[in-house]
Design a protein around this nucleic acid. Structure first.
Length: 476
RNA sequence: GGCGCCGUACCCAAGUGGCAAGGGAGAGGUCUGCAAAACCUUUAUUCAGCGGUUCAAAUCCGCUCGGCGCCUCCA
């Protein structure tokens, strides 16, 4: 079975063919080139933003799991109206301002166990590549100047609207144009390059001084990093129009070749049934939620527990359910680690593992169905737990099971990932108390035994008795 | 108004033509001094509603009701 992903451009779920030429063996493909729209670093990102970034990470990790080579870039937008306004308000330079929020963003994605991408270009460091696009569009008479700004003439790009399925007439009837629309030849045209304004940062290019329009940086970076057509471009659904539509227009008009093969868009995170957004004020930042005692790990789980193409309504109840699900996984890992039996290897284990990996791959191959894949994983946990209960399992078997889970965690990234601080736990003291309690139990002094257990529980340590003795774990 | 998505148990959520995965919560049981964990059993004759196509539909078609997104900065 081949990996299939839903392509917004065609509206179909298509087999992923990197480079556009079908090969028999995945390792024969050239690296999958991916560009993801990154953050504008003007404040803290909210968990709706992170849904998209966690999805990008999932895509990256799953492609590698399937044997693809990957080249993944994500931009940092470090100049726009909001960053300029923010820097002004704080009385610092644009660079100081955006570096601060870039740092915060990097810390946040790290705490969500998002793997670093290969390239993280900044808009302000890609000006020359933007200038190249501007030059080409001017030469082809597709861009025009008005009061020092440069605009893209949509009338000269007939395919405009294909991605978003909005035909030109409908866009025009939208009636709400930019405030500066009177400067444009056509209200639908968009700014490629904005004239420098007093008190605002600007960059000198052969085409004059100014600053980038919103859309041009992505086109420029993709050209600069990847050269030509890329395989995958990702982003949230709200970027389909106008951002991605405009990227296609300017790139394809400038270079005369296909811009992107597969457009992948992830759905919104909702709060109380409405899109989580800064402007509505109904957002939670990662730090707000962590401050309430929830772990980034459970947020990662929650964000991956629904299919990326479906809206996901965020609630704290949902987050608690995610924590409970993770606890089930953690208990399973603890039981697995506890197996000491050296012999009596179970001949069924290899088959169970193979079937597990194969089923999970099938689900993920079908447009990254993480919810379905989780179902497969929990079935697996259930099956293995039953075998552990019947005691038909050896330490060697446990190791094989462990290895398989390790493989799939290279995709999920929430099974072994621990993000809680190791607080002042003294294992030696706990072990000695467990020993003391065992002696009390042997003398049937259950009062004392329970006291020891209660004391530790108050410290956040849970004791569990089994046939092979007592084990302990931290309370979640 | 145009375009698109969605409506599955108490909550979350897969399944898109062959007769309802999984997680959470709840109930009963096994094990245990008790507890915890785990295991077993259990909770949708039914998939928003109404029609239609079919041997067969949650899955396809039509209509109705309800929710969301995009068309404007936005992940």
């Amino acid at each position: 079975m081949a990996l299939k992903i839903h392509n917004t451009l065609s509206g179909l779920t298509e087999e992923l063919i990197p480079g556009g030429i079908k090969k028999e063996i995945i390792s024969d493909y050239p690296p999958v080139t991916i560009y993801s729209c990154g953050p504008t670093v003007y404040s803290y990102a909210h968990i709706g933003n992170f849904r998209t970034f966690v999805f990008n990470d999932l895509l990256n990790r799953y492609l590698k799991f399937r044997g693809f080579k990957v080249r993944h870039a994500m931009n940092i937008t470090d100049v726009d109206d909001k960053t300029i306004a923010g820097a002004k308000k704080d009385g610092i330079t644009l660079k100081e301002y955006t570096e601060k929020y870039t740092e915060i963003f990097l810390e946040d994605i790290k705490s969500l166990n998002i793997h670093p991408v290969d390239e993280m270009p900044k808009a302000t460091e890609s000006i020359d590549a933007m200038a190249d696009i501007l030059k080409r569009l001017e030469e082809k008479d597709i861009a025009y100047r008005k009061d020092g700004s440069i605009y893209f003439s949509i009338a000269k790009f007939p395919q405009y609207g294909r991605l978003s399925r909005l035909d030109q007439r409908e866009i025009k009837s939208g009636l709400r144009y930019d405030t500066d629309s009177y400067e444009k030849e056509d209200a639908r045209d968009f700014a490629l390059w904005k004239a420098s304004a007093p008190g605002e940062p600007s960059w000198d290019t052969p085409l004059g001084s100014g600053r980038p329009g919103w859309h041009i940086e992505c086109s420029a970076m993709i050209r600069k990093i990847f050269g030509g057509t890329i395989d995958i471009h990702t982003g949230g659904v709200d970027l389909i129009f106008p951002h991605h539509e405009n990227e296609i227009a300017q790139s394809e008009a400038a270079y005369g070749e296909r811009f992107v093969r597969y457009w992948i868009h992830s759905e919104h995170l909702l709060v109380d049934g409405a899109k989580m957004s800064k402007s509505l004020g109904n957002f939670h930042t990662l730090r707000d939620i962590v401050g309430k005692g929830y772990s980034p790990r459970s947020i990662r789980y929650l964000l991956l527990s629904a299919h990326y193409k479906k809206q996901l309504n965020f609630t704290f109840d949902g987050l608690k359910q995610a924590e409970a699900a993770l606890e089930r996984i953690d208990n399973f890992i603890i039981r697995l680690n506890d197996i000491k039996n050296e012999n009596q290897s179970n001949p069924e284990i290899d088959n169970i593992i193979m079937e597990f990996i194969s089923k999970l791959t099938d689900r993920m191959d079908d447009d990254l169905n993480t919810a379905g894949a989780l179902g497969v994983f929990f079935d697996y946990i259930h099956d293995i737990n039953s075998i552990i209960d019947s005691n038909k399992i050896s330490k060697n078997d446990a190791q094989k099971i462990f290895d398989a889970i390790n493989r799939i965690d290279s995709v999920f990234g929430f099974i072994f990932y621990k993000d809680k601080k190791e607080d002042d736990i003294d294992p030696a003291r706990i072990e000695s108390l467990i020993k003391e309690r065992a002696e009390a139990k042997a003398k049937k002094d259950f009062k004392k035994a329970d006291e020891i257990r209660d004391t530790l529980q108050k410290e956040g340590i849970i004791l569990e008795d089994s046939k092979d003795g007592t084990r302990w774990k931290k309370k979640k």
